[in-house]
Structure formats: structure tokens, C-alpha cells
Simulated assay, not measured.
Amino acid sequence: MENKKLMTVKEFAKEYGLGTNKAYEMVRAKGFPVITLGKKKLIVRDRIDEFLYKNIGNSF
């Protein structure tokens, strides 16, 4: 794994073992650490686990 600070939604899905559709659904969740540049969505890598821990028990 490279030491990149941002990742694409497809990279996120692969790294966390999610399907692409579910990954995009999570990216649209309130508070998810995503930056939108035009149509491209980039996820802040070091904030993902924090978001997941805060949302344990929630459905996406």
C-alpha cells in the first residue's frame, strides 16, 4: 500500500472489502470524510476508521 493521504471510492471499497455500490452509499453518508473535486470523490484515508467507529451499529 502506498502512503497516500487520499483514496478513490474504488480503492476504499477494495481495501475495506466492500462492493462499489455500498462504498458509494457510505461516501454519501453525513460526516463521511470525503472531498469532492468536480465529479471525483476522494476519501481522507486517516479519517475513515474514526468515522466507522463513531457509526458502529448504524446502517448504510
Rank of each mutant, 00 (worst) to 15 (best):
V44P: 00
Y53A: 10
N21M: 12
L6K: 05
T36P: 00
K30E: 12
F51A: 02
F60A: 10
G38M: 04
L6H: 07
N3R: 12
I56S: 04
A13L: 06
R28I: 00
L52W: 10
N3P: 05
I56V: 15
V44K: 08
S59Y: 12
R47M: 08
L6A: 04
S59F: 11
K54E: 14
A13R: 08
I43F: 02
E15I: 08
F60L: 12
F32C: 04
G17Q: 06
K54Q: 13
F60G: 06
G17D: 08
K10N: 13
L52D: 01
S59M: 08
K30M: 01
K41V: 01
N3K: 13
N21F: 11
K41Y: 11
R45F: 05
S59P: 00
E25W: 00
E11K: 05
T36M: 10
S59D: 10
L37R: 12
N55Q: 05
M26E: 03
E15V: 11
F51K: 00
K10L: 12
Y24M: 04
K39N: 15
K4E: 12
N58Y: 07
E15F: 08
G19T: 15
R28K: 15
L6V: 06
D49L: 11
N58D: 09
F51N: 01
Y16W: 14
K41T: 00
Y24P: 02
E50T: 06
K5Q: 10
K39S: 13
K54S: 11
K39H: 09
F60W: 13
I35E: 10
M1A: 14
L37Y: 11
K22I: 11
N3W: 07
L6W: 08
I56K: 12
V27Y: 03
K4C: 09
T36V: 14
M26Y: 10
R47Q: 12
K5R: 11
G19V: 06
K30F: 03
E50Q: 07
L42H: 04
K10S: 15
R45Q: 05
K30H: 07
G57V: 05
E2S: 13
K22V: 13
F12M: 15
G17W: 09
Y53E: 14
T20P: 04
A29F: 05
I35D: 02
G19K: 13
V44M: 07
G31V: 02
V9L: 07
K10C: 03
N55M: 04
L6S: 03
D46N: 13
N21V: 14
E25N: 13
K10A: 14
L18Q: 09
A29P: 00
M26L: 15
L18C: 01
G38D: 05
K39W: 05
G57A: 07
L6M: 12
T20G: 02
V34E: 08
V44Q: 05
F60T: 09
A13Q: 08
G19C: 09
